[in-house]
Amino acid sequence: MKTSASAMALKYFFVLLASAVVLYPLLWMVTMAFKPYPEWTTVSGLTWFPQNPTWQNFEFIFYGHAEGLVVSLDRTISGPLIASLVTSICGTLIAVVCGTLSSYAVVRFGLAQSLPLSVLQLRLFPPLAVMIPVMVMWAFIGAVDTWWGLSLIYGIVTLPFAFWLMKTFFEEVPVEIEDAARVAGCSYWRVFYRITLPIVKPGLATCALFVFILNWSDYLLALLLTQKEWVTLPVYMATLTSAMGGQMYGMKAALGVIAAIPPVVFGLMIQKHLVRGLTFGALKQ
């Protein structure tokens, strides 16, 4: 039929358009990462793909200097990479563990019925609004520029997200399944980790990935709460400028490519669960 064919064409047009909008910056980042310095700017004319592909940008951020470049870095990527990994993973652990346990208590035992809303309030205002007092507190307990200080704030800031996500997953688990296990002789704790957690595993994986991405891409908290030792990748990226060369676009793009790897790998690892997790509520028991 003619109408459906044109409707299909229109549909694909919009799908392609949306994909292009989403993928264009990614493409630009990847190609930029392999462009040598002269190709970053309009001096030699911008091109879609590198004319003289090079590893120079990667070399520069890993070693602090590169052949053919007069500038050098006082800090390579390795420190920030480790800092980002450590704080993001620890922050994710804190948020997911606390969020899972507390939402389970709320859903299954009807405890702390005011908790869902009060947790949500943590996200109702911009984090910057409370960052001054947080900075004072963190300075007071000696948490500024430490891995645990940053992990802690990551855990707190993403806790509402983990809490609400896990709450919806737990609400989907029929209470009878847990009752069946209890009747079979399981304690509450055993029911939780042997029956309920395995059932919500897709949700748990989805939750962990989202929280990880939130932590991994944070700029503001790390900027305010780190100084030198535990500077994370986003903050480090902002420092990639030089008095002579201005913004070091190639290095930033190379850094972006590297920074994109952990979430992508994580996402691929749990891909099987991810589809299930995102559609959890839509499935019949």
Binding site: P174, E176, I177, D179, A180, A181, R182, V183, A184, G185, C186, S187, R190, I195, P198, I199, K201, Q285
Partner: peptide, 30 residues
């Protein structure tokens, strides 16, 4: 868990993440 009761639920409450064998053996394992 110490009452030793068999309970069949209206919606069956099958452990869908386990195999049929594991479902049957669950109470005995506990």
């Amino acid at each position: 868990q110490d009452r030793n009761i068999g309970f069949v639920f209206q919606n069956y409450a099958i452990f869908t993440h386990l195999s049929v064998y594991k479902n049957l053996s669950y109470g005995l394992e506990v």
